[in-house]
Design a protein around this nucleic acid. Structure first.
Length: 492
RNA sequence: GGCGCGGUACCCAAGUGGUAAGGGAGAGGUCUGCAAAACCUUUAUGCGCCGGUUCGAUCCCGGCCCGCGCCUCCA
């Protein structure tokens, strides 16, 4: 099976395959650690996670590199304001980033590359460009890439910049540039700012150069895939192409994937609009990590996703349905044998599911394939015609599903617990939803005791007491389900 | 202004030149001590509007309206 993925460069669906027949070499732009990541950032990382998990599912080995930008204007400004070294300033956001990644069950790339740890590689690349007369140094000590040196500029974003050359928009700070569109490779620093003493002078890297240098360091001069948010297409990725291809004379990346933006209530998310959310914010409001994950991946990556709290509720309920279904499968006592209808349904679901993902990662269609099977299996179970081998067949499909979506297996308690801990440490307890605190007030053991007491009361036909316990649990977010196979409970 | 994307039921959303997946929510029913869960039925003669091509268009073409993104740091 092969994944056909939209390629920004060619404007069509292209088969995604390693050029050398070995592991797929992919690079994805990671976060700039000047603050906590928001759900927009994580939509991109999550969609890339879907990609890598699906590739693994179909047996393609991958080598995935992600950068962490731990030096840039905002970081320098903020750390200066806080009066701490940038390393110390970024450390907490790097930690937070990995914590959030884990909460959302985003797999760690094979290689994480931090900008500050690859200064020599960047310097070498600038030197190479300088030798090719594609980079020049300005009076203040900064280095710029000469756009005129790369005629193909704009091929990714399909921009024709020839008519916009040296227009009215010249930044006063950058008057020394040969052309307004030339971009910084290396920035001279002002006194007091973090800088590196290097062969090309004292300063710090420009943003674009880090991705080129680090991608080539770990993946070679020509990548199979480069991914990132749609906003990075121009100018960031365009600049990466320009500087890399000018330096190597090789195609930098054969395949480009861009994840569309997440909107909130139909608008771009921004702090000033007041519609800005981090995963932490949502966890403290009582939403589960799995619901955030599903909501952010259920809409295919090439569609803008309009985030609303409704979308989170929808995802929560959909996951509940899947988890209930699987619990019913595992708890049920089935007679030996197989039901041909179910065997067929499982096979079809398996195929449809994989085909959907293979078709430009159509997560919505993949989800539909799974739910169709769930309904058919439930129906057959209701009729008592479900057999032991059917369980294996259906569970196998769910396993495939969770290999990519990873939401059925309930690991929601830990992220919520950690978010609460974080709220305590950072004095944000007022942001915690009261229902969440109520739900946290009972331990599993306490719940088990109450459930047992209720079962006893029911047996004694003391329904008043049984209902009383059920209501008490409901108030604390615990739902009880009586079934032929015993009592199940779950936290809502 | 330039480039691009979208407008499908109450909400989210897939999709195809041949007659509308899936999820969520609502209503009715089955089951249950009652619930919950599950299942069944039900909710778009209709896919922004107007033309055109076609035997036939939601899907192709043209125009229009509305919404959004990028063009500057940005996932």
């Amino acid at each position: 099976m092969i994944l056909r993925l939209f390629n920004t460069l060619t404007g069509q669906l292209d088969a995604l395959e390693p050029a050398d027949g070995k592991a797929l070499r992919m690079y994805a732009c990671g976060p700039t650690v000047y603050d906590y990541g928001h759900i927009g950032n994580f939509r991109t990382f999550l969609q890339v996670d879907v990609l890598r998990r699906f590739l693994r599912l179909i047996g393609m080995p991958i080598r995935h590199v992600m950068n962490i930008t731990d030096v840039d204007d905002k970081i320098i400004r903020n750390s200066l304001e806080a009066g701490i070294p940038i390393g110390e300033y970024t450390a907490r956001y790097v930690d937070a980033f990995f914590e959030d990644m884990e909460a959302l069950r985003i797999e760690r790339p094979e290689q994480i590359a931090r900008a500050t740890e690859h200064i020599p590689q960047m310097v070498a690349l600038v030197e190479k460009l300088a030798a090719a007369k594609a980079a020049y140094k300005t009076e203040d000590g900064s280095w710029y890439f000469r756009l005129a040196a790369f005629p193909a500029y704009g091929k990714l974003s399909k921009k024709d910049l020839s008519g916009m050359e040296d227009g009215a928009r010249v930044d006063v700070d950058e008057y020394e540039k040969d052309s307004a569109r030339d971009f910084a490779l290396w920035k001279a620093t002002k006194p007091g700012e973090t800088s590196w003493e290097t062969a090309i002078g004292n300063g710090r890297p420009g943003w674009h150069i880090e991705c080129s240098a680090m991608a080539m360091e770990y993946l070679g001069e020509s990548l199979d895939l480069h991914a990132g948010g749609e906003d990075l297409m121009f100018p960031h990725h365009e600049n990466e192409i320009a500087q890399s291809e000018t330096a190597t004379h090789k195609q930098f990346a054969r395949h480009w994937m861009h994840v569309r933006f997440l909107l909130v209530d139909g608008r771009k998310m921004s702090k000033s609009e007041g519609n800005f959310y981090t995963p932490r914010d949502l966890l403290l409001k009582g939403y589960k990590a799995s619901a955030i994950r599903l909501a952010l991946i259920a809409v295919p990556y090439r569609r803008p996703f309009n985030f609303t709290f409704d979308s989170l509720v929808d995802a929560t309920n959909a996951i509940g349905r899947l988890r209930t279904f699987r619990a019913r499968l595992t708890a049920g006592a089935f007679t030996v044998g197989a039901n041909q209808a179910i065997q067929g349904a499982a096979k079809k679901a398996q195929t449809d599911y994989r085909d959907a993902l293979a078709n430009d990662l159509n997560t919505a269609e993949a989800l539909a394939a799974i739910f169709e099977m769930v309904r058919e299996a439930n129906t057959v179970m209701d009729r008592g015609l479900f057999r032991l081998s059917d369980r294996d067949a259906v569970l196998a499909v769910l396993k495939d599903f969770d290999a990519v979506f990873d939401v059925i297996e309930d690991r929601d308690a830990e992220p919520t617990r950690r978010a609460l801990e974080w709220a305590k440490e950072s004095s944000r307890m007022e942001d915690v939803a009261p229902e969440l605190l109520a739900a946290q007030s009972l331990t599993d053991e306490e719940i088990e005791l109450l459930v047992a007491e209720r079962t006893a009361a029911k047996k004694a036909r003391n329904f008043a007491r049984a209902d009383e316990i059920r209501n008490e649990l409901a108030e604390k977010g615990v739902v009880i389900e009586d079934s032929k196979d015993g009592v199940r409970w779950k936290r809502k």
